[in-house]
Amino acid sequence: MFLKRHKKLFFILGIFFFLIPVGLLSEYPAWGEWDVDFFKESLGFIPEGIKKSTNSINLIPDYSINGLNDVVSYYISAIVGVALIFLFFWGLKVVLKNER
């Protein structure tokens, strides 16, 4: 489908894809996106609501896969994320076509 016609678009996607391990260089999280321990240390307690909701189930939590090297996990995460996004828009295209 659009693979052929929009080959150049993938060029820019490729550039950013290869750049993503740069994101692993920082050991610090974004402001506010701390581990639960942070609250224990800074406040002396963990707010109830935060304590109760620490176990969510995700396919690839924190973009890291057990037993795999950080960079490899990050690349796999990127592929999964990008694939899901294209899947969504491909699905949307099918739905829109059927409606017309």
Partner: peptide, 18 residues
């Protein structure tokens, strides 16, 4: 549509670059 999909994917990737 392909451009929107690509830019959305790009947005996902750029958010990985901390």
């Amino acid at each position: 549509l392909p451009l929107v999909a690509t830019l959305t994917a790009l947005s996902f990737l750029v958010m990985m670059i901390n």
